[in-house]
């Protein structure tokens, strides 16, 4: 069948280029804006972390100068602050990735803060006859880590969180103070802790000085 096709104006080719460029621009704007917010939050974390570290050092110095009774120190508020800092770090890990260099650098300082807080808690527990549980949790974030499964560590972390919530918030038992350490951390203090407790596999738990591997919630409850 023969029909005369009328010529249509086809000057829309440039629409493709402009639409493509605009899409790239919107994407770039989205990524830049996202990055800007994330970086500003990273900065906020760093400032909080620095302030915390200064407070800890100040505690230390004050104690050595005045020889104050350690039982009078308000270590619990300090621990709460450590928990808040830990939550911020977890959010940063979720957003920027667990292997992000900045996050890892902040984590090293955080681990030092943890160890310092841990030392205080241990001292208070012994010298002031306080009754609470101190749990050290060694984990890995690396997939296919020869030291153990990252998924297993994630599960152990969730169980610990649940128990901390039940004991500390709902007052179902003795308070639990958890300190988490990445076994792949380059922090010398963390490595020293690993050596002290002979941690070679993860997840590893040190509950009130005793070493354990992965523990279910029921097993943990019987120990706390």
């Amino acid at each position: 069948m023969k029909m005369t096709a009328a010529k249509t104006k086809r000057n829309e080719h440039w629409f493709f280029i402009v639409a493509f460029v605009l899409s790239i621009m919107v994407f770039a704007l989205g990524l830049l804006l996202g990055n800007y917010i994330a970086m500003s939050k990273l900065k906020e974390f760093r400032e909080t972390e620095e302030k915390f570290l200064i407070d800890l050092i100040a505690f230390d110095v004050r104690e050595s100068i005045l020889k104050e009774d350690v039982c009078k120190l308000n270590i619990y508020d300090l621990f709460k602050e450590k928990v808040a800092l830990g939550r911020m770090l977890t959010r940063l890990e979720e957003r920027l990735g667990k292997e992000n260099r900045d996050v890892m650098a902040k984590k090293e300082i955080y681990e030092l803060i943890q160890i310092k807080t841990l030392r205080y808690l241990e001292k208070i527990k012994t010298e002031c006859h306080q009754d609470y549980n101190i749990v050290l949790f060694f984990y890995t974030n690396k997939k296919n880590d020869p030291k153990g499964s990252a998924e297993g560590c994630e599960d152990q972390g969730k169980i610990l969180d649940q128990l901390v919530y039940e004991h500390n918030e709902k007052n179902k038992g003795k308070k639990i103070y958890v300190f988490s350490f990445d076994v792949n951390s380059q922090n010398l203090a963390t490595k020293a802790l690993m050596l002290k407790y002979n941690v070679t596999r993860v997840p590893a738990l040190i509950i009130n000085g005793e070493s354990y591997g992965y523990l279910t919630k029921t097993e943990l409850e019987s120990l706390l």
């Binding site: 990055n35 800007y36 969180d161």
Partner: peptide, 28 residues
């Protein structure tokens, strides 16, 4: 099955919200 229950309270931390909003997928 692990014995972990969902927490009913929603933590409205400014830090958490800001970080969630910084996700390019959310912004886009």
């Amino acid at each position: 099955s692990l014995g972990v229950q969902p927490k009913l309270e929603f933590q409205l931390e400014a830090f958490r919200i800001a970080l969630a909003l910084s996700d390019p997928r959310i912004i886009l």
